[in-house]
């Protein structure tokens, strides 16, 4: 059984949900700190805070999906860390999703590592 397509799909879903929430929260933060008084204590609306908290928990799900995929693909440590950090940088997770898909498509079917491991 090849687990990579499922892991890739799970990663794509989390990369997009986390990415959209992070992008909205970041643009909102930029606007709030530049033009409104978000720098002051109690200056932020509730929804704004909830969005950032949501990003924290979504990022946790993103981590699980990303680690799972990185393990299946036998990623070295720094590549894995880069993949994990992509969920914390605005818009980086969309790029990570694109790169991961391109990478998996480029693999010859017989070289998919998890296939090799499961047909021992």
């Amino acid at each position: 059984m090849n687990k990579i397509p499922t892991a890739l799909l799970a990663f794509r879903i989390m990369a997009w949900i986390t990415g959209v929430v992070l992008a909205v929260a970041s643009v909102w933060a930029l606007y709030g700190y530049l033009f409104l008084d978000y720098g002051l204590e109690g200056g932020k609306p509730l929804l704004y805070s909830i969005l950032w908290i949501a990003h924290g928990w979504l990022y946790f799900a993103y981590l699980i999906a990303a680690v799972n995929l990185a393990f299946l693909l036998r990623f070295p440590i720094f590549k894995t860390l880069a993949l994990l950090l992509a969920g914390t940088i605005p818009f980086a997770s969309f790029y990570a999703d694109y790169v991961m898909h391109r990478y998996v498509r480029s693999l010859p079917a017989k070289e998919l590592p998890s296939k090799e491991a499961s047909t021992q």
Binding site: G42, K44, L46, I50, W52, I53, G56, W57, F60
Partner: peptide, 13 residues
């Protein structure tokens, strides 16, 4: 001031 939701959840996270 409202309950510091963000600080509280960040601590747990």
């Amino acid at each position: 001031v409202a309950f510091p939701l963000q600080n509280f959840f960040y601590a747990i996270q």
